[in-house]
């Protein structure tokens, strides 16, 4: 057994450094097979487990109904077409679902980020009595599951006439505990000296926030923004409850409508096309900016 494959990577550092000198690194002939078997097989397996279902979704969305409703399975579409996408648009206002999702995500995420930035700034840089208590209240809100609040919020919002409206979908989720918490932790790490200089120059809080604190915190703000965009786009239970008019449904709700309205197996191609539309944008955003998203979503694992 070679050192590289039998040991966890804790020792791999040293092992690789030493073995490169001796000319028997992980890619040397005697180690190559072992590296492939022990190192790459699990990696490839892990990646395949994730990608095969998604690839299957994408391939199926381009297939003809006859290729799906058959027990004689072909992996690749025989005559790739956008027919399933067109059919999805015929059965439901799919463009409208997409537009609604874009509107709800854009406005919701923008307002939430803005609120998170100004609240976190106030909590860190502006003196106020009971500041700690207020922070604890925000922290507790972070732990209160939004799911248990849907019934009272439904009754409140629908009594105000918010059913099937953009504001009704967006408003209850606007208060942000996650973003505030994450940005507060970051602002606390900023050196006080950069603000003192600005204070001497006579810059007020508003200017200090937008010309100093926000620019130097761009990566943290990007993290909050991306995590918020992802969660707004995928948000399901609230839009599901507050909309019943197809013209106001977001993509996840519209997909539910589509899957309920036709339970015959004929619909699989159409449903896969719908799944591509809801999954692909986030997959692309994630592929480009995954560094920020992973940091944001696994935040806390280091402290806890």
């Amino acid at each position: 057994m070679s050192t590289t494959t039998s040991n966890p990577a804790a020792t791999a550092d040293r092992a690789t450094a030493a073995s490169v000198e001796r000319g028997n690194g992980p890619f040397a002939r005697n180690n190559l097979t072992a590296t492939l078997a022990g190192g790459y097989m699990p990696l490839i397996l892990a990646t395949l487990i994730v990608f095969l279902p998604l690839a299957w979704m994408a391939l199926s969305s381009f297939k003809q109904p006859g290729e799906i409703v058959t027990t004689d399975l072909h992996i690749l579409p025989q005559a790739p077409s956008f027919e399933n996408y067109a059919e999805a648009a015929r059965r439901a206002p799919f463009a409208r679902f997409f537009l609604n999702s874009v509107i709800v995500t854009t406005i919701g995420a923008a307002v939430k980020c803005f609120l998170a930035i100004i609240t976190a700034y106030a909590l860190v840089f502006v003196s106020f009595p009971f500041k700690r208590l207020l922070f604890v209240l925000i922290l507790v809100a972070l732990m209160v599951p939004p799911q248990v609040a849907v019934l009272p919020n439904y009754i409140l919002i629908s009594s105000l006439g918010g059913q099937n409206t953009y504001w009704g979908i967006i408003l209850p989720g606007l208060g942000t505990a996650f973003g505030t918490f994450l940005l507060r932790q970051h602002f606390l790490t900023l050196p006080g000296s950069i603000l003192e200089a600005a204070e001497i120059d006579g810059a007020g809080h508003w200017r200090r926030l937008w010309s100093i604190v926000a620019p130097v915190s761009a990566p943290s703000i990007a993290t909050v923004a991306l995590v918020t965009v992802v969660s707004e786009w995928n948000d399901y239970i609230w839009p599901l409850i507050i909309t019943n008019n197809t013209n106001m449904m977001t993509l996840p709700v519209g997909l539910t409508f589509l899957s309920n309205s036709d339970s015959s197996s004929q619909a699989w191609g159409v449903l896969m096309a719908g799944a591509v539309v809801v999954i692909l944008p986030i997959l692309l955003v994630f592929a480009m900016l995954q560094r920020y998203i992973v940091t944001g979503l696994t935040q806390g694992s280091v402290t806890g």
Partner: peptide, 25 residues
């Protein structure tokens, strides 16, 4: 890659798997 499913829509993911689990097709 392995983190990706965590950020995807549960509804989209559910439909994809429902198709995979379909007893006939």
């Amino acid at each position: 890659a392995v983190f990706a499913p965590y950020v995807l829509s549960g509804v989209g993911v559910g439909l994809v798997w429902l198709f995979i689990f379909d007893p006939v097709y």
